[in-house]
Simulated scan of single mutants.
Amino acid sequence: MRISARNQIVGTIVDVTKGATTSHVRVDIGGGKIITSSITNAAVDELGLKAGGKATVVIKASDVMIAVD
């Protein structure tokens, strides 16, 4: 796979929790850190995502926001 995004982190899928239309996919990236992504159920099915599988988390910087008071 070749992609222009530079923020790529390889990990292992911990679990996939499906909702009505979207799923939460939790990926263990090591060192006790877990990244959670919200993607469509269709994407989960098409990619065959399941616990124990390897995955690459791709983060597009313009789409990540964090705020605190």
Rank of each mutant, 00 (worst) to 15 (best):
D69R: 13
A20G: 01
I39Y: 05
S37H: 08
K54M: 11
G11P: 02
D45R: 09
A67N: 09
V57P: 00
D69M: 07
L49Q: 03
V57N: 02
I39A: 07
V16W: 03
G53C: 06
K18D: 07
M65W: 04
V14H: 02
L49P: 00
T40E: 04
G52C: 11
D45I: 07
A5N: 09
Q8C: 11
T22H: 07
V27M: 03
K18S: 10
N7Y: 08
A55D: 06
M1S: 12
V57L: 08
Q8A: 07
I39M: 08
A5D: 10
G48S: 10
D28M: 07
K50E: 15
G52Q: 12
G48Q: 11
R2N: 12
T21L: 13
D63I: 02
G11H: 04
M65Y: 06
S62G: 09
D69V: 11
T21A: 14
Q8L: 13
M65D: 00
D45Y: 05
Q8K: 15
V25I: 12
G53M: 13
D63C: 02
A67S: 12
L49W: 03
G32K: 06
A51C: 06
A43D: 07
G30S: 07
I66L: 14
V64F: 15
V44K: 03
V25S: 01
K33R: 13
A55K: 06
K33G: 01
G32W: 08
I39N: 05
G31D: 05
V58D: 01
V14D: 12
K54I: 08
I3F: 10
M65I: 14
H24W: 03
A5E: 15
T40N: 06
N41G: 10
H24D: 11
I29M: 04
A42E: 13
T21K: 12
I39W: 04
T12G: 04
V58T: 08
K33E: 08
I35A: 02
S62A: 13
M65T: 06
L49C: 05
A42T: 13
G31E: 07
A43V: 10
G19C: 09
K54A: 15
M1G: 14
I3L: 13
A42C: 00
T40W: 06
T17D: 05
V16H: 03
D28V: 06
